Simulated scan of single mutants.
Amino acid sequence: MNVIFENFALYRDGFFKTLYICGYAMVGSLILGTILAGFRVSPVPPLRWIGTSWVNVFRNCPLTVVLFFCAFGLPEVGINGAYFWFSIVALVLYTSAFVCEAVRSGINSVPAGQAEAARAVGLTFGQSLTSIILPQAIRTVVPPLGSVIIAMIKNSAIVGAFGVGGELFAVSDTLTGSRGEAALPVLTGIVIAYLLITLPAGAFLGWLERKVAIAR
């Protein structure tokens, strides 16, 4: 355990860098996934095709391949940037497919009469979706969305292999590779750091689920 205390500053910086990656990826995934869920239930066939194709592609494609595509494929077509942002883009693209399906399941759980009543009073599809259906659907999708977010946090460990630098994967690589520290105590510190992210996140989502259940 001395390795953890002696390199506490390195662990701290890696923890916050990982937290930044997870925060950006979570917000982007929730926004994009919700938009795609709207596409999936849209009465416009091209939008439904886009939503369905997105889900089928990214849900059935390994995250590692998506990361390779963003980190090494995008620069070849003239899209350049730091690996930090490429990693976030990859996580958003991948996770949004799962968010989409979770939100779509919530939309489908809302009684059809709600949409029919919205149309009866003259609301457009977009207005009924954002004002009537989604507020009710979100309450039912907190548990599956929570599972998706926790999985995304754990998946963020993979991005370190693509040269992001400074996050928890890089910390373990630096300590075991460059400084020759023993792997077991180093990885123990990494596990503790991830638990400090996932356990509070899981507790918050559990509290939110109970609160929403009471509200229903």
Rank of each mutant, 00 (worst) to 15 (best):
F72G: 13
F72C: 12
F72Q: 13
F72A: 10
L74W: 07
L74G: 14
E76L: 15
V77S: 12
V77C: 12
I79D: 11
N80K: 13
N80P: 04
N80C: 11
G81L: 06
G81D: 15
A82C: 03
Y83A: 15
F84W: 15
F84Q: 12
F84N: 07
W85F: 14
W85C: 09
W85D: 15
F86Q: 08
F86G: 03
I88N: 13
I88L: 14
V89S: 09
V89E: 04
A90D: 14
A90Q: 12
A90G: 15
L91N: 14
L91W: 14
L91R: 09
L91V: 15
V92I: 15
V92P: 10
Y94D: 01
Y94A: 04
Y94R: 01
T95H: 10
T95P: 11
S96R: 07
S96F: 11
S96W: 10
S96M: 10
S96H: 08
S96A: 15
F98L: 09
F98M: 11
F98E: 11
F98P: 09
C100K: 08
C100V: 08
C100Y: 06
E101K: 03
E101D: 11
E101R: 07
V103K: 01
V103A: 04
V103N: 03
V103H: 03
V103C: 07
V103F: 06
R104C: 13
R104S: 13
R104Y: 12
G106L: 02
I107V: 14
S109V: 05
S109T: 00
S109H: 03
S109L: 06
S109M: 01
V110F: 00
V110R: 01
P111T: 10
P111W: 03
P111H: 08
P111C: 08
A112E: 06
G113W: 04
G113L: 10
G113S: 09
Q114D: 02
Q114H: 07
Q114L: 07
Q114S: 05
A115F: 05
A115D: 04
A115N: 05
E116Y: 05
E116C: 02
E116K: 06
A117S: 08
A118P: 04
A118G: 09
G122S: 00
G122I: 01
L123W: 02
T124C: 02
T124N: 00
T124D: 00
F125Q: 09
F125G: 12
F125I: 06
G126N: 11
G126V: 05
S128V: 05
L129K: 02
T130H: 14
T130W: 15
S131G: 09
S131N: 09
S131P: 02
I132M: 07
I132C: 10
I132A: 08
I132Q: 09
I133K: 05
I133R: 02
L134R: 00
P135F: 02
P135A: 08
P135Q: 06
Q136Y: 00
Q136F: 00
A137T: 03
I138K: 01
I138R: 03
I138Q: 04
R139W: 00
R139D: 01
R139H: 04
R139T: 00
V141E: 03
V141W: 00
